[in-house]
């Protein structure tokens, strides 16, 4: 029964090896999807190429459906899957900062590493900037601590927040994703310039 690590099917060291393999394949497929190319990534903010949005939503609903069906058939104990805690205040601001950086730099943290791997200079600069930002954040942390912990909601999930059945939320997310997909294509047709 999954999650395998939590049920002790492999130990700490094996889990690191598995994490490395998953990480390498993640990077490989990002590169193959064209996500190591900053112009393609930045293009989505001008509604000209929404590949990123479409790929992300496809991945999200594939993973979501997978987790829900594995739970439904009893292969997965979802209560043992790690959930990131929600800090609403800090995460809203952090998300906006990330979005601005994404639009300006053309990378998100993961894809910048992919760009570095293929030797893109802008990705190297971007990653160096990210590292510097981490240093500044770390040094300023005592000042930012209260803000960092603002809006703590615990391990919040949508079904708990809206008090709806998990399966129904799953269906609504699928509908939303399909809507985003179709909306994205509509935007692409409207804004796409020839020869870009």
């Amino acid at each position: 029964m999954a999650p395998f690590y939590k049920f002790g099917l492999f130990g700490d060291q094996t889990s690191l090896v598995i994490a490395l393999l998953i990480g390498i394949s993640f990077g490989f497929w990002l590169e193959r999807g064209g996500f190591g190319y900053s112009r393609k990534l930045a293009m989505q903010f001008y509604f000209q190429d929404l590949t990123v949005l479409k790929v992300m939503f496809s991945a999200i609903i594939t993973a979501m459906l997978g987790l829900m069906y594995l739970t439904l058939f009893g292969f997965l104990d979802i209560s043992r899957v790690y959930i990131n805690p929600t800090y609403m205040g800090a995460q809203v601001v952090g998300g906006l900062v990330l979005g601005v950086g994404f639009a300006i730099g053309g990378y998100c943290p993961g894809t910048s590493v992919v760009g570095v791997a293929t030797g893109k200079i802008d990705a190297i600069v971007y990653l160096a900037g990210a590292m510097f930002g981490m240093l500044v954040f770390g040094e300023l942390f005592p000042l930012l601590k209260n803000f960092y912990n603002s809006g703590f909601m615990g391990n919040a999930t949508l079904p708990e927040f809206f008090n709806l059945p998990t399966g129904l939320i799953g269906f609504l997310v699928v509908v939303m994703a399909v809507g985003m997909f179709l909306g994205g294509e509509w935007l692409e047709r409207k804004f796409r310039k020839d020869g870009v």
Binding site: G167, G170, F171
Partner: peptide, 23 residues
């Protein structure tokens, strides 16, 4: 693709996922 996703989602909407999620 869309059809498959929506069908799978629709089945989930009527499935007892929460009951199975109890440890």
């Amino acid at each position: 693709g869309f059809g498959t996703f929506i069908l799978l989602g629709l089945i989930l909407a009527f499935s007892p996922v929460d009951r199975m999620a109890r440890a």
